[in-house]
Amino acid sequence: MSEKNREGKRTARERMREDRAAQEARESRKKKMIVLGSVVAVLAVAAGVGVFVQNQRSKPDTPTASPAGAIGNKNLVIPDGPANAPSTLTVYEDPRCPACGQFERQFAPTVDQLQDQGKIYGNYHIVSFIDRHDGGKGSKNGANALACAQDAGYFRAYHDVLYRNQPDETVDSWKDKSQLITLAKQVPGLDSPTFESCVNSNKFGSWVSAVEQDFDKSGYTSTPTILLNGKPIYPKNGNDEITPDNLVKWVNEANAGKTLGTTGSASASPAPTSTAAETDPNQPAQPAPGATG
């Protein structure tokens, strides 16, 4: 009897202990689930907030202001030479990129000549990705200053001056905007209070950012990227190395049998309307230059 009783008591005690243990396990599991839930929630909220905040902070890919005469989708491209030239030379350049400086110092006279002969229509994409790689502001400041020069009608001359005076890639001289203004004095007629305030106020900053974002999505990853009628020709066109002579040859081949563009407006960036006005009415339909890339 007493044996049984003791046994009954023990089982009851054991049962209570088990119950308590089970309850503690449940509590601890609940606590764990709360922690797990909060952690997952914190991570999800953080990512969501990040997407929202960065969306607010990121510059739009449509510029709020574009330099006068810019062409293409969202006016991201600076044209040089006659719009009705039979071939289009598309150039992606970064003001700080040493290979671009090399290209410009070697090819600028040839390219300028081809444009002035009505053989090519220059399409310049002024990108600014070196600032990301090396840090700094020189690419963006330089690109903005080039947009300011385009706005004033002196893109080509200022562009050539910048590349002739390009600092070493790792030296971010152009983070100092006054250097860009000093260089503008080498282009007769460019430097003006309007130009200086344009450079200093980073007037085309949103345009510079939009051009870079367009380049980001272009699939081209380095500068200079040079396209002749949409086909990459730098550093090689097929098996042939690009040289000034080869460039002339390739352009002439591409233009064979086609009417050359309007010549005579040797200055950079002719206004689209004036170019159209000078167009020979007997000429076949203009090639659509469009924004490549």
């Binding site: 914190v42 991570l43 909220v45 953080a46 990512a47 969501g48 907030v49 990040g50 997407v51 905040v53 960065q54 969306n55 990121s58």
Partner: peptide
Amino acid sequence: VKPVGYGLPFLEIAL
């Protein structure tokens, strides 16, 4: 591209 590029850094900071 943008959701991942924008969200990932905040996820890392939350971690």
